[in-house]
């Protein structure tokens, strides 16, 4: 059954009838009475209250592999009943996860790009997150500004782990493609590995460092669909935007970020030097 988003909304609004075990879930409503939700390519994500606490409720639009090993007890298989217009129903998987209040990284950048001190802190915090992530046994698999929440205290939180790569994940079933613009162009042509986060992390580190020096780059090169430049335009091609960023690092005497940026020209998605360059701060 290919259900519409509205059918998911209806089901979540009638939680006592449609959930197998999570019947106490209550969607958080907007001022107009509609539930708070976002829609990704594979799930509708609701902001809900459960046992007095805020949670994100990911309701999947299609079956996906590896969700149980990724999310563990947060994963509820065939939990939510979705009905079509003839009253027929199907059960879909959901994940009840922690809610992080805040805004996505791209929204934070849009709002604060001209605040140099804020951008320096953001850049610094992101590098900590990146280093921490590179030291883990798992990789996120879909690093992009949409999947990073900036809280009011400026802490950063990763969300949406559907594309996670870990020792427990069955890679024969792995069909995540990442997000173009942030992934190396060969990401989906090489064996899946923990280094899958290297390239998007390096790209975001580079963009944030550049924006901390010159916030006007945001308006000139865009921070909504991409962060200043697309991965595809950097690898094996000429990018005016990227060249300007390199010149900026040279002008500022910032050899570290210059070298991190140069990694983005790599012919391969794995960037083994990234961790050392990040740690050298």
């Amino acid at each position: 059954m290919i259900a519409s988003i509205s059918q998911y909304v209806v089901s979540v609004l009638h939680a006592c009838d449609t959930f197998s075990t999570l019947s106490e879930v209550q969607p958080v409503l907007r001022a107009d009475g509609t539930p708070c939700f976002s829609v990704g390519n594979s799930a509708v994500v609701f902001k809900v209250k459960c046992a007095g606490r805020l949670h994100s409720l990911r309701c999947y639009l299609r079956r996906k592999a590896n969700l149980r090993v990724i999310y563990g007890a947060r994963f509820y298989e065939k939990e939510l009943l979705i009905f079509d217009d003839d009253g027929r129903c199907e059960r879909v998987d959901v994940v009840l996860d922690e809610w992080h209040e805040g805004e996505t990284l791209d929204r934070a950048i849009e709002r604060h790009c001209l605040d140099a001190e804020y951008m320096q802190r953001l850049s610094h915090n992101f590098e900590h997150l990146a280093l921490d992530l590179l030291d883990k046994e798992w990789a996120h698999g879909d690093i992009k500004p949409d999947n990073i929440i900036v809280s009011a205290d400026e802490s950063l939180h990763l969300i949406d782990f559907d594309a996670m790569v870990s020792p427990e994940v069955d890679l024969t079933l792995y069909d995540e493609e990442g997000t173009r613009g942030f992934c190396h162009p060969l990401r989906n042509y090489v064996p899946v590995a923990k280094s899958i986060d290297d390239y998007p992390l390096a790209l975001i580190v580079t963009a944030l460092a550049a924006l901390a020096y010159d916030g006007t780059l945001a308006e000139r090169y865009g921070v909504s669909d991409r962060l200043l430049f697309d991965a595809e335009s950097v690898v094996g091609a000429h990018s005016v935007n990227f060249d300007e960023v390199l010149r900026l690092f040279v002008a500022k005497g910032d050899g570290r970020h210059f070298h991190i940026a140069q990694l983005l020209r790599s012919a391969e998605p794995a960037l083994p030097r990234l961790r050392k360059l990040l740690a050298s701060y």
Binding site: I5, S6, V9, R30, C36, F37, S38, V39, V44, E103, T104, R107, D146
Partner: peptide, 8 residues
């Protein structure tokens, strides 16, 4: 709905 991201 599909174009919705949070309040945007």
């Amino acid at each position: 709905a599909r174009a919705r991201r949070d309040d945007d």
